[in-house]
Computed example of a mutant assay.
Amino acid sequence: MDKWLWHARVVKARTSAAELVESGHVRVNGVRETSPGHAIKVGDVLTIALDRTVRVLKVIAFNERRGDAASARVLYEELGEGKRN
């Protein structure tokens, strides 16, 4: 999961992705996940608490390596975004 978050450019570094997951800020299909190595699949919905916002992303693809912003954007569908309380 941390690798996908990094490839999708949700975070700037893979270590940041791992820390985000380990600290409980990521849910997979509504269930909190704390293992950075947790396998995700196409169709999974990730709810990610970032700073003061929440992003809801549906996984639609994977990449072998991290690319530019345009190639990262094809990895997911943005389902929602809002402010945290």
Rank of each mutant, 00 (worst) to 15 (best):
Ile60Thr: 15
Asn29Trp: 05
Asp68Met: 05
Ala13Asn: 10
Ser16Trp: 00
Val74Glu: 14
Asn63Ala: 14
Tyr76Glu: 04
Glu19Pro: 06
Val21Ala: 01
Asp51Tyr: 09
Asp2Pro: 04
Ala39Tyr: 00
Ile40Gly: 06
Glu33Asp: 13
Val45Glu: 14
Ala13His: 13
Thr34Trp: 06
Trp4Val: 00
Thr47Glu: 13
Leu75Phe: 15
Ile48Pro: 00
His38Ser: 09
Ala61Pro: 04
Asn85Trp: 02
Ile60Val: 15
Thr47Val: 04
Gly43Pro: 13
Asn63Trp: 08
Ala18Gly: 13
Thr53Lys: 13
Glu78Gln: 07
His25Leu: 08
Asp2Met: 01
Gly37Lys: 06
Asp51Gln: 11
Asp44Arg: 04
Val74Trp: 07
His25Asp: 05
Glu22Cys: 09
Val28Tyr: 09
Asp68Arg: 02
Ser16Leu: 08
Leu46Val: 11
Arg66Pro: 14
Leu46Gly: 08
Ile48Glu: 05
Leu20Tyr: 09
Thr47Ile: 07
Glu19Met: 00
Ala13Cys: 14
Glu19Ser: 04
Lys3Ile: 14
Glu78Ser: 13
Val28Trp: 07
Arg66Gly: 09
Thr15Val: 08
Asn63Tyr: 07
Leu75Gly: 11
Trp6Gln: 07
Met1Ser: 10
Glu78Thr: 08
Arg32Glu: 07
Gly24Gln: 01
Lys41His: 06
Glu19Val: 03
Val21Ser: 10
Arg84Gln: 14
Tyr76Val: 04
Gly24Asn: 13
Lys83Tyr: 12
Val26Lys: 03
Glu81His: 12
Thr47Phe: 02
Val56Phe: 00
Glu81Asp: 10
Trp6Val: 09
Lys12Phe: 06
Lys3Gly: 12
Leu20Ser: 01
Tyr76Ser: 01
Lys58Asn: 08
Val74Gly: 07
Gly80His: 02
Ala61Tyr: 03
Leu57Thr: 04
Lys12His: 02
Glu22Trp: 09
Gly67Thr: 06
Ser71Gly: 04
Val59Gln: 10
Gly67Asn: 03
Gly37Ser: 15
Val11Gly: 04
Val42Pro: 00
Val54Pro: 12
Val31Ser: 15
Leu5Val: 09
Tyr76Asn: 05
Arg66Ala: 15
